[in-house]
Design a protein around this nucleic acid. Structure first.
Length: 582
RNA sequence: GCUCCUGUAGCUCAGUCGGUAGAGCAUUUCCAUGGUAAGGAAAAGGUCGUCGGUUCGAUUCCGAUCGGGAGCUCCA
């Protein structure tokens, strides 16, 4: 038997799905049925909505078709024949596709009684599809546009062998266990509450403690890399947002205005205008540049209710934002150091695998002159080249105001997340008339670069939760070590240790509940605490304590020695080669 | 926002073919003082998301509304 690529198997499975759906609903209208990452789907317009029972029924019908081992064969029809056939079958969506493709001839694939417009390729016969599984049904707009009717999309997957399918299903279960929304609740990190509003995050003590650690690290790194900190308000007058253009181009994502004393204020959806106003409050010359203004700035954006998702997509979030204002000559260096800083920071948090995307000037509708764009794109490209990273180019994918680099990180189970972004802006410096005095004593327009390393604190935190499955490294964990008393006799000793270590900044917790030691150990695992120490008469008498990491023994220490161990475990991982300031 | 699914104790869920509800975990108290993944007992805890309709009677049926989930579109 010839081995077919998995996409071919899945696309063939999609045909079989459509075939089964037509058996059940002869009047069904078919949309499209491609293979996707991990599976396939097919869109249908059906007389009623599908239930889980329908999926079971369809799956059974599909399996019958697989057993029948119907051969796939390709047909080539003229446009007239194709249109005539689809008209007769009342397949209006297929007619849409034909009209759009506008070809002289069309390829069709046939297996058993089922015929579909399709350029292939397919497996030789349905028996070669292996094993299939329908997963879920949900709505999807025809051609992705909400102006079009909503179809029912059936998702499924197919694999060559049963073991592969089982492994895949297991992986889906594993991914579920990492869900930051569940872990966030279980570990007491954050919550989202009905009475507060969707997309608004409540950081609980454990989560807020981690956020503090993240932000503390972030501030240290930025200080050492030549950034200045600024802070800006959460609201600003409408005039500011008119000048910035946000009220013209971004209003649909902004909350409505707040009216006070005949003045209109808007919640900030971005920090840039404020940073620019800091710049404009003083005259700068080329001697002052580059300036790097950084802020953990909390912004508010209206997002449609359906798109909110845990920490990943929210309505109020904190960007780890910075704006670099520099001369054309400095652009190259700045981009390179930003990229280095970015990769360093990502790797400290455990993300060594990244994918880099360069987005260049749109074909039309852009601001700034071609020379600027060329210089900016060149700076971005060279930085990636010098760092020796592979990257993909999204030609014409840049914003109207400038080219950019986006970095996606890959988590522990291979999913990608967009976080970091480095963007040129040729728009705001003009709108705000930003200038600096050059060597020639004349006014010049500076370059401005927006950049964020995490993207947003909330999203990055969510990714961290899923990446580590809640088992955070000791430097980041909200609780580094928990002391477990064997019985009440150890309580005062444990309390003494806790207090003295806490005073050194060690994040230590004491479990002096009435539980037996076995139950306390169990909680260590449930709460995903990195280290624990059991305290009983033995430890009190010997003045030695045994530090354990899960089931592993780290070592036996004296009290001071143990304290120093945890102090060393509190240190940030090394970030070497931090960009040196000018 | 749209389509579908969903909403019972702090959490996870069971249940009522219409007669105002139950388990486990968590909490509190008591007993036990136990040495590496759940010691025992008791108590407390719910206008069954909200509003309206049908009904002698609604947590259950119907409608609306507000949350949550999956996906579509969009995005940090």
């Amino acid at each position: 038997m010839v081995a077919f690529p998995i996409e071919v198997i899945r696309h063939s499975a999609a045909h079989v799905l459509a075939q089964a759906v037509l058996e059940l609903f002869p009047e069904a209208k078919l949309g499209i049925g491609p293979s996707i990452e991990d599976g396939f789907y097919y869109d249908f317009e059906l007389p009623r909505s599908l239930s889980d029972d329908d999926l079971i029924d369809l799956e059974r019908r599909m399996n019958v078709i697989l057993v029948q081992d119907q051969p796939f064969s390709q047909l080539e029809w003229t446009a007239e024949e194709a249109v005539a056939y689809m008209t007769e079958k009342r397949q209006s969506y297929k007619l849409d596709i034909i009209k759009d493709l506008n070809l002289p001839t069309y390829s069709f694939f046939k297996n058993g009684p089922f015929l579909d417009l399709c350029k292939g390729p397919h497996v030789a016969s349905t028996g070669q599809i292996g094993v299939i599984k329908l997963l879920k049904v949900s709505g999807a707009y025809w051609r992705g546009s909400e102006k079009n009717p909503m179809l029912q999309r059936i998702y499924g997957t197919a694999f060559c062998a049963r073991e592969d399918l089982d492994r895949h299903l297991l992986k889906l279960e594993e991914a579920k266990k990492r869900d930051h929304r569940l872990l966030g609740k279980d570990l007491g990190l954050f919550s989202i509450q009905e009475d507060i509003g969707g997309g608004l995050i409540l950081w609980h003590p454990k989560g807020a403690r981690m956020r503090y650690l993240m932000e503390e690290y972030w501030r240290q790194v930025h200080l050492r890399s030549g950034y200045e900190f600024v802070n800006s308000p959460h609201v600003g007058l409408s005039k500011l947002w008119h000048t910035s253009g946000h009220l013209d181009f971004y209003q649909e994502n902004m909350y409505s205005s707040i009216r006070v004393e005949e003045q209109e204020y808007y919640l900030k959806p971005m920090n840039c205008p404020f940073h620019i106003m800091v710049y404009k409050d003083k005259g700068y010359s080329y001697r002052h540049l580059p300036l790097r203004f950084a802020e953990l700035g909390t912004v508010y954006r209206y997002e449609r209710s359906g798109v909110l998702h845990g920490l990943m997509r929210v309505r109020g979030f904190t960007q780890d934002d910075a704006h670099i204002i520099c001369t054309p000559e400095q652009v190259q260096d700045e981009i390179l150091t930003v990229m280095k800083l970015c990769l360093d920071v990502l790797s400290v948090f455990g993300f060594q695998k990244v994918e880099v995307y360069l987005s260049t000037r749109p074909k039309e509708k852009f601001v700034g002159d071609l020379e600027q764009w060329a210089q900016a794109e060149n700076a971005l490209r060279q930085a990636i080249d010098i760092l020796g990273i592979d990257y993909q180019v999204d030609d014409g994918g840049g914003a109207f105001y400038g080219p950019k680099i986006d970095i996606k990180i890959e988590d522990a189970i291979g999913r990608q997340w967009q976080c970091s972004t480095v963007q040129f802006d040729f728009n705001l410096p003009d709108r705000f008339d930003m200038t600096y005095i050059g060597v020639d004593g004349k006014k010049h327009r500076p370059y401005m670069i927006h950049r964020a390393l995490w993207g947003s604190v909330e999203r990055f935190f969510g990714i961290l939760i899923e990446h580590y499955e809640g088992k955070f490294p000791a430097w980041l964990a909200p609780v580094q070590v928990r002391l477990l008393t064997v019985s009440e006799t150890a309580e005062s000793y444990a309390l003494f240790l806790k207090k003295s270590w806490m005073a050194h900044g060690i994040r230590v917790e004491l479990d002096h509940s009435n539980d037996k030691i076995g139950a306390k150990i169990r909680k260590i695992f449930l709460d995903k605490i990195p280290y624990h120490i059991v305290l009983g008469d033995r430890e009190i008498q010997s003045k030695m304590i045994c530090v354990k990491q899960g089931n592993k023994e780290v070592g036996s220490f004296g009290i001071e020695e143990a304290r120093d161990f945890f102090l060393s475990e509190s240190a940030y991982p090394d970030f070497l080669d931090v960009a040196s300031p000018h």
